[in-house]
Design a protein around this nucleic acid. Structure first.
Lengths: 260, 260
DNA sequence: CTCTTTCATTCAATATACAGAATACCATTC
DNA sequence: GAATGGTATTCTGTATATTGAATGAAAGAG
């Protein structure tokens, strides 16, 4: 039997339900009622009510008794603080971002790589005052997209078939063919950093360099990456190579600081 | 490390267990094994294992297969981002903090009031270069402590008995007597902002001013507060009143912007 | 290398969380 | 004021999540 039975396979389904509810509330722009929530996460209203009450008890969701609507509660911030506290990367990366962003006038991101599924923005710094290509902390992106994706493909020890499958599911503004993409990935292995020149978002150029986590963990692939984002025309004018090399230096410094 | 609070009966106990595990992992400085986690949250190892697996499936917990240790995963950041997105206060307050912190050389906090239980730091700004500020976001404090506590007591429509009970449980460096504290709370009602002069932390003065949430929600008490923290001697020299009045003005501005 | 200890994981019986129907609660509308 | 529609909430039998013991897999000591 193939392993693909993701729903109901767990021995603690209430947790998956709770996570789905939290994510829905995080996505929603307005407070939601029980009915709307139950419908969206495909739960029985009664079950959903108990989930919401338990989450409210933990102060992860807020309940407005007057309108009977639910929202995320600030308790989720406390969890995030706990993660930030213990993540060496999150602690160290802002300094690197603050160095590079003003120097090259780019938006800098520090991202965490979560498997082959996706990456999560951990920290950000704005370079130019005019064009703010803001990606907020906590945002998720598909793992293989853009420059970071080429990094993951180049340095992660992943199954080629798996990569091909996931590549096919990506959405680009201007998709590169798989063959050309693979050639670029090969180039990343030599050069050390990756470039996405308008493929992901038209007119926008993205660079990424890998940061490894623990000592000698390089065989398992990078756990993080530094990302630079800027307007393509401006970046090409000021020289991509200089930015790429600066990314590499900072990324190597971070790897070293984290015990490499 | 101290034991977590006991898990209470609910119709979805797995959620309370999950929250306890997440909080424990957030508190811990090092990755933890199954045994340590199960012991701390008072769970059967087998049950705890299923909880951890479900949390890992949701990418709220990271599992290191080599060491069999668990950590918080970056997914908690995504939840926090959802909360920040939909909180008008979190969106607006940084501007206020950034205005006041350098002007008075104080550490500024924006806090969210969660019932009578506690407050959560939502945003922070440094005046001097003394401490790291970003680490503070997400911290929890008892609701009635320090200057914020006097605000909540003054403007929240809470049961006096409940307040007295909770007051008795607080820990101060230099506890004010209940009678004197109540007199100060009365003063807060007239002046509009609260002062804690070395009671909570010796040598440190804290000021707080309330921010109400929705329009006409003042009857239910403030949902947020602006907090200023500084060295007592320095603050008294530069004048507490000026800082207090500035806090009030910013707090009123925020209340207005949030639909007051 | 073998024994001992510690920890993670599976297994099978049973206490209980869950789904669905039934009820209570509002807020509108007639 | 009565009725209606759309909610949220309680109630109850049953499938299943939880438990504690048994098994497996490492790590450390002798």
């Amino acid at each position: 039997m193939k392993e693909s039975s993701p729903i109901q396979a767990s021995k603690a389904p209430a947790i998956a339900r709770a996570a789905a509810v939290l994510r829905l509330l995080g996505r929603s722009d307005t407070p939601l009622g029980l009915g709307a929530i139950a419908r969206d996460v495909a739960l029985n209203p009664s079950t959903c009510l108990y989930v919401l009450r338990a989450l409210a008890e933990e102060e992860l969701v807020a309940f407005d008794a007057a309108t009977k609507r639910y929202t995320l509660e600030a308790g989720v911030l406390t969890l995030a603080r706990g993660w930030l506290r213990q993540s060496a990367f999150a602690e160290l990366v802002p300094a690197s971002l603050d160095r590079l962003a003003p120097r090259f006038g780019v938006t800098m991101l520090g991202v965490q790589i979560v498997g082959l599924d996706h990456i999560i923005v951990v920290a950000a710094a704005q370079g130019g005052q005019n064009f703010q290509l803001s990606a907020e902390v906590g945002s998720r992106f598909p793992a293989l997209i853009s420059a970071t994706g080429r990094c993951i493909a180049a340095f992660g020890a992943h199954d080629p078939d798996e990569i091909a499958t996931r590549f096919a599911a990506l959405r680009w503004d201007d998709p590169p063919g798989f063959a050309r993409w693979q050639a670029e990935v090969e180039q990343v292995r030599e050069r050390g950093y990756a470039v996405d020149d308008g493929n992901y978002i038209a007119g926008v150029t993205v660079l990424a360099a890998p940061v490894w986590k623990g000592a000698g963990a390089m065989t398992q692939g990078p756990g993080h990456a530094l990302v630079a984002i800027g307007i393509g025309s401006a970046l090409r004018r000021s020289g991509l190579d200089a930015l790429g090399e600066a990314l590499l230096i900072e990324a190597r410094g971070l790897t070293r600081q984290m015990g490499g």
